[in-house]
Amino acid sequence: MSCLWLLGCVALLSICCSFLVSASTQETRWTAERANQWYAQQPWLVGSNFLPSNAVNELEMWQADTFDPAEIDRELGWAEQLGMNTMRVFLHNLPWEQDAKGFQKRIDQFLAISAKHHIRPVFVLFDSCWDPNPKLGPQRPPIPGVHNSGWVQAPGKAGLMDAAQYPKLQAYVQGVVGAFAHDDRILAWDVWNEPDNNNDSSYGKLEPANKRDLVLALLPQVFAWARAAQPIQPLTSGVWTGDWSSIDKMSPMARVQIQESDVITFHNYGWPEEFAARVEQLQQFHRPIICTEYMARGAGSTFDTILPLAKKENVGAINWGLVKGRSQTYLPWDSWQHPYINETPPVWFHDVFYEDGTPYRAREAQIIREATGKQQPSTGQE
Rank of each mutant, 00 (worst) to 15 (best):
M250K: 02
T379E: 06
S251W: 01
P121V: 08
A79M: 13
P346E: 08
A64H: 09
S327G: 04
M250F: 04
Q37V: 11
G300W: 10
D73Q: 07
Q26R: 15
D131G: 01
F349I: 03
G204F: 10
I258W: 01
A226T: 12
I368V: 11
D248A: 15
Q139P: 05
Q41T: 13
A371V: 09
T372K: 07
D127N: 15
A362Y: 11
N85Y: 14
A371N: 05
A35T: 04
P272C: 06
P142R: 13
L59A: 01
G298M: 12
K312E: 15
P234V: 07
A224V: 08
N133Q: 13
R212P: 00
W225S: 04
L111F: 10
F50P: 10
K168F: 03
C9M: 13
A163M: 05
Q381L: 09
P132E: 09
V347M: 11
A100P: 00
I289E: 05
W240T: 04
P308T: 08
E33H: 09
K135R: 14
D304A: 12
N193Y: 06
G145Y: 14
T25H: 08
S149T: 09
P208H: 12
G137W: 08
L6I: 15
G300C: 03
Y340I: 06
Q328Y: 00
G102P: 12
A100F: 03
A188K: 03
L307M: 15
L82I: 07
G270K: 07
P141S: 14
N199R: 05
Q233A: 10
P95C: 06
A371Y: 00
G77V: 03
H267P: 03
P339A: 10
E75T: 03
P377I: 13
K324M: 13
E207Y: 14
L7P: 00
V89R: 02
